[in-house]
């Protein structure tokens, strides 16, 4: 009788359970009504089953978002785990949609589900991609804008994983500053 090794039938568990959300901009509805939970997963295999099944970000209509957050954290500033948090923000030029957008987003997802930031991965709440005509954005959200060690470690690893050249500066902004900004840009807490 053949004995199957466990590797052939046991899925690979992730450290966290994750929830993928989709936002579609419909101006007749409230912001919250436009936000839908797609699915949750907690294994490597189920992550790919979901990823392979949905549209690439570059195919989404302008105004749409994907968000991947740890189970129990809603992808909004108001959630208790986000209220004092902030984000490492990657802004992309229009030309980068073709060259970099899908690659950057997949790399972001792999950083999250693979726990790429070592012990500081605990500070990660999730990640968001905004598809916008004026320029797409990708961000990793963390839970506390005062956790300098965690934020700088996450930023360094993330920038390296994306292959962003050292001379390009990326910024970390608190959600509180983003929510209350008066102009078009938010001041960086860290770079």
């Amino acid at each position: 009788q053949k004995v199957m090794s466990p590797e052939t039938y046991i899925k690979h568990p992730l450290q966290n359970k994750w929830a993928l959300w989709f936002f579609k901009n419909d101006k007749s509805k409230t912001w919250q009504a436009n936000l839908r939970l797609i699915s949750k997963f907690d294994t490597v295999e189920d992550f790919w089953a979901l990823y392979n099944h949905i549209q690439l970000s570059s195919n989404l209509m302008s105004g749409c978002d994907y968000s991947l957050f740890k189970d129990g954290i809603e992808p909004m500033w108001e959630d208790g785990r986000n209220r004092r948090g902030g984000r490492w923000l990657i802004t992309l030029s229009k030309q980068q949609r073709r060259a970099d957008l899908d690659r950057f987003w997949l790399e972001t997802l792999l950083c999250l589900v693979g726990e790429a930031f070592d012990d500081h991965s605990d500070d990660v709440c999730g990640a968001v991609i905004n598809v916008r005509a004026k320029g797409d954005k990708i961000a990793i959200w963390t839970t506390d804008y005062e956790n300098k060690d965690a934020i700088t470690h996450i930023g360094r690893v993330y920038k390296e994983r994306l292959g962003v050249p050292p001379k390009v500066i990326i910024g970390y902004q608190s959600h509180a500053d983003t929510a209350t900004k008066s102009g078009s840009s938010t001041k960086n807490k860290f770079v």
Binding site: Y9, K11, H12, P13, L14, Q15, T43, V44, E45, D46, F47, W48, A49, Y51, N52, E107, L110, V113, G114, E115, A116, D118, D119, S121, R161
Partner: peptide, 20 residues
């Protein structure tokens, strides 16, 4: 211990069926 997976390991599973 934290369950960490590097990118090559994760990418190796992209086209393995998860229909179990």
């Amino acid at each position: 211990k934290k369950k960490q997976y590097d990118r090559e390991f994760l990418l190796g599973f992209q086209f393995i069926s998860a229909s179990m």
